[in-house]
Amino acid sequence: MEVDKGKGEAEETRKVAEADRDTVTLKSSDGKLFEVSKEAAARLSTVLAGMIAGGSIDDNGTDLKQIGSEALENVVDYCNKHANSIPSAALISSSISFNTAPFKEPEEWERKFVDRLSHDALFDLVEAANFLGMERLLDVTCHKISEMMKGKSPDQIREVFNIKNDYTKEELEEIRQELAWAFYDD
C-alpha cells in the first residue's frame, strides 16, 4: 500500500515542481520508488548528502541497487519519523561513566521502530544503513542486535542467529585452553 502511494506521490511531485524540489526519489534494487525529504536525507545519510551536494541525484529515481524495497521503505520510514521526532537531550548512556565518547541510547520511538522488524528485515536495514552512511540508524540497529546477544552463552547466540559451528572438537578445545581466562563456569 505505502509503496504504491509513495510511487504515486513521487510522480505527482515530479509533475508539479520539476526544479527546486525539496524531496529526493530513491529507487530500490527491484525498481520501486520512494520519496524522502531532501533535508532529512542529507542530515541522516552521508552518502545521500554527498550525492545531493554533488548533483548526482536522479529526478527519475536514484538507483540504489544494493537495497531491496522493504529495506528502503524502512530507511525512508526512519527518515520521516526522525524528522518528526523531537530530539530529547541527555539520553547519554550513564552506565559507563568513564567512557566520555558515549553511545547514545536509542530513543523510545527508535526502539519501537527496530523492535517491530523481522529478523531478516533488521539485517537488511543494518546493511542499508551501512551502505548509505546513516550513522545513527546503524547505531540503533547495532544496538538492537547487541541486545539480542547480551547475556547469552555461545550456544544460545548460535541458535538466535543460526550460526553454524564449523569448528572441529579439537579446535574448540584448543581455543578454550588458549583463552582459559575468558572461559570458566560461573
Binding site: F103, F123, V126, E127, N130, L138, D139, C142, H143, I145, S146, M149, K150, G151, K152, S153, P154, I157, R158, I163, K164, N165, D166, Y167, L172, I175, R176, L179, A182, F183
Partner: peptide, 26 residues
C-alpha cells in the same frame, strides 16, 4: 556482516561476552 559492523555490535556487550564469541564459528 562486515567486521566493522560486528565491532560496533560487540562493543555494546560486556567485554568478556564479546571475547567468548570467538567460539561461535571460524
Amino acid at each position: 556482516l562486515s567486521d566493522n559492523i560486528l565491532h560496533q555490535i560487540l562493543v555494546l556487550i560486556p567485554f568478556l561476552e564479546a571475547v567468548r564469541t570467538c567460539v561461535l564459528s571460524r
